[in-house]
Design a protein around this nucleic acid. Structure first.
Ligand SMILES: [Mn+2]
Ligand SMILES: [Mn+2]
Ligand SMILES: [Mn+2]
Ligand SMILES: [Mn+2]
Lengths: 151, 151
DNA sequence: TCATCATTATAGCCATTGCTATATTGTAGG
DNA sequence: CCTACAATATAGCAATGGCTATAATGATGA
């Protein structure tokens, strides 16, 4: 809407437009990388646990169908985060491992923080799975500080 | 991967499978409703500020193109959250107003909470725009409790 | 060895969320 | 009144992330 500098203008209802558009833009960027982060994190966990990450296991853990996983793995391979041999499990590249490790750490901090705040473990687990992807380094640092000195 | 009850099995690397799949499922559900919540919240703010919510204003605030908004508004109308007259601004139905109010409140609590935790206002604003959609009522309650008794 | 079965690959479908280009409509000024 | 111009509508495209059905492959066990 256009600026209406009349006497009865209610200031404060709307936040600064430039700031708001920047927030929405950043959120859209985070949403695009969300799935990739969950995939590499899960792949790293599966490899750490059983030595390999297979499509069926990834699909079962994510609760999606196997072709959905197959398509995403192609994308991850195209982005250089994993390597795959036909009809074999996948493994992480150096770049993929780094992203997985960063994601795992951040996820752990968010979940621990929620628990420290008094949220039940079950709810903390669910909420952290979504929240983790929208937490900046600054907010993550604030979470860490709280964990070091809760209450 | 299959269960491998060997002696060298590393327990604890992988979380419970059923719990994990439930987390991912809930996150996918939240992701689907994210945009709708931001739209109705923004529409309510625009109406409160200027008396009307036009496509150009919504588009400018979200940082997307006008046809993107037009398409989403059709969806919101189909879902009964807004009413629109051709070539006119939109307004919220009773249902849309309720969702907008709930979203606005939740958004405000999340942003205030981050600030109270020591996050800078600019970062809190950005992070809250994403985090808000993945916060359960239980976690929101924990945020409120902290706001009532911080530090 | 080789047949079966679990796993992976592929094809084709749909919904969502973005875009550009362009047609249509409404309205305000001259 | 009527013409610009601003706003909206529409068409068509692309990427993402789901799905089912089915083909191709690998590995296991008899
Ligand atoms: Mn995660
Ligand atoms: Mn996650
Ligand atoms: Mn919001
Ligand atoms: Mn938001």
């Amino acid at each position: 809407m256009s600026i209406k500098p009349t006497a009865e203008t209610f200031q404060g209802v709307l936040v600064d437009a430039d700031a708001q558009v920047e927030s929405f833009r950043q959120t859209r960027i985070s949403r695009r990388t969300e799935l990739v982060e969950d995939y590499v994190e899960l792949i790293a966990d599966l490899i750490a646990d059983g030595g390999e990450a297979r499509q069926v296991d990834i699909a079962q853990r994510l609760g999606v169908a196997q072709p959905t996983v197959a398509k995403m793995l192609k994308r991850l391979a195209a982005e250089g985060l994993i390597q795959q041999k036909p009809y074999r499990g996948v493994f992480l590249t150096a770049e993929g491992s780094e992203l997985a490790e960063r994601s795992r750490e951040r996820h752990q901090i968010v979940e621990s923080f929620l628990c420290a705040l008094g949220v039940s473990p079950a709810t903390a687990r669910i909420d952290a799975e979504g929240i983790e992807h929208y937490v900046s380094t600054e907010t993550l640092q604030a979470f860490k500080s709280y964990l070091n000195n809760p209450r």
